Simulated scan of single mutants.
Amino acid sequence: MKRYCFLFLYLLAEGLLAQQKPEIAFTIEEKDLIPEGIAYNAVDKSFYVSSINKRKIITISADGKVSDLIASGDNEIEQVLGMKVDAKGFLWACNNTPEHDTVNRISNVHVYDLRTKKMVMRFKLVDDRLHLFNDLYITKAGDVFITDTQASMLWVVRKDSKTLEEFTKPGSLTWANGITASQDEKFLLVSTTGPLGIAMVDTQTKAITPLLNDRYMMMGFDGLYRYNNTLIGVQNTFFPESIQKIVLTPDNKRAEKIDFLCERDALFNSPTTGVVADGYFYFIANSQLLQIIGNQGKIKEPEKLNDTFIMKIKLSEAY
């Protein structure tokens, strides 16, 4: 028995040693920001962080200077979630009216030219269903796919189009959230909280199948990203909160292995989304999202809020 206990402790220690201690990349000294999305502009090495509580987008310059890119409520922007920068230097930002606002129920994608800081397009959705534009993926060809969490579906804006189109049917992707794609972009990979786990959506036929695996529960990733032949998932649905690495088979249709990149960090407080940039994975470590959910848009305990920490993990050491 002692030998088995020793072996268990040894394997546990090996697993912990395999993880990295994430480091703080940036600190945003705005305690009530309640951030959700983060994006990166490789041209000037700036980061962009969205705010749910303040309905705005901030920028972090390459030297760490923090300032507002889009001020609160500008261009009727609502609570801002997932964001991506496209090849043209445009920032796409999902935003929605607050959950407690049962009158307006508006979901938007605002598109900003980062050179001029002006809005160049707005895709607005108002109908008789509940919607929540949550995250998006931009293909190399320029198509933009958007997860709609409340309607459990995907939308698409085709390259150079000014129209928002249904891509999958409502209810097809339970609580769709994080989204990325296979290396060849034949499949979208969408995080769900249903039996599909991580769903594979064929970009041509729209057929939906699960990402296969023999032994892992792959549900509820807030952010989902591809790096080489792996996925990086931000897990805040189940505990411990963690950043996970999912190793895929060469055909991208099965998960071979899941490892923790990091978990149980003292600064974690509902980590949400991240972005791969210059060999690192940057992510929002403490969105403090639970401070505002279910409280009519008000902060529950303002005295317990902390600064926002953007942390990073060096991917070359984890692969």
Results as ranks from 00 to 15, higher is better:
residue 9 L to A: 15
residue 10 Y to L: 08
residue 12 L to W: 00
residue 17 L to C: 08
residue 19 Q to N: 02
residue 24 I to R: 01
residue 24 I to Q: 04
residue 25 A to N: 07
residue 26 F to K: 12
residue 31 K to D: 04
residue 35 P to G: 05
residue 38 I to R: 07
residue 41 N to Q: 14
residue 46 S to L: 00
residue 50 S to N: 05
residue 61 S to A: 06
residue 63 D to K: 14
residue 65 K to G: 06
residue 66 V to H: 04
residue 73 G to N: 14
residue 74 D to K: 12
residue 75 N to A: 13
residue 78 E to L: 11
residue 81 L to F: 11
residue 87 A to S: 11
residue 89 G to M: 06
residue 91 L to Y: 13
residue 96 N to E: 08
residue 104 N to L: 15
residue 105 R to K: 12
residue 106 I to R: 04
residue 107 S to C: 10
residue 107 S to L: 12
residue 110 H to E: 09
residue 112 Y to M: 06
residue 114 L to A: 09
residue 122 R to P: 00
residue 124 K to P: 03
residue 132 L to Y: 09
residue 132 L to K: 13
residue 137 Y to P: 08
residue 138 I to T: 06
residue 139 T to L: 03
residue 139 T to Y: 02
residue 139 T to E: 04
residue 159 K to G: 02
residue 162 K to R: 08
residue 178 G to T: 07
residue 181 A to D: 04
residue 183 Q to E: 05
residue 185 E to C: 01
residue 186 K to P: 01
residue 186 K to L: 10
residue 191 S to H: 05
residue 193 T to H: 07
residue 207 A to H: 15
residue 207 A to E: 15
residue 209 T to G: 03
residue 213 N to M: 10
residue 216 Y to K: 04
residue 222 D to H: 06
residue 225 Y to D: 00
residue 228 N to P: 00
residue 229 N to Q: 11
residue 233 G to A: 00
residue 233 G to N: 01
residue 236 N to V: 02
residue 238 F to E: 04
residue 240 P to F: 00
residue 243 I to F: 13
residue 245 K to V: 08
residue 248 L to E: 06
residue 250 P to G: 10
residue 259 D to M: 13
residue 263 E to R: 15
residue 265 D to P: 01
residue 265 D to K: 09
residue 270 S to W: 09
residue 271 P to A: 13
residue 273 T to G: 05
residue 278 D to G: 08
residue 279 G to A: 12
residue 283 F to L: 04
residue 286 N to R: 02
residue 286 N to Y: 09
residue 290 L to Y: 05
residue 292 I to F: 00
residue 296 Q to S: 14
residue 296 Q to R: 14
residue 297 G to D: 03
residue 303 E to K: 13
residue 305 L to D: 01
residue 306 N to V: 02
residue 310 I to R: 03
residue 317 E to M: 11
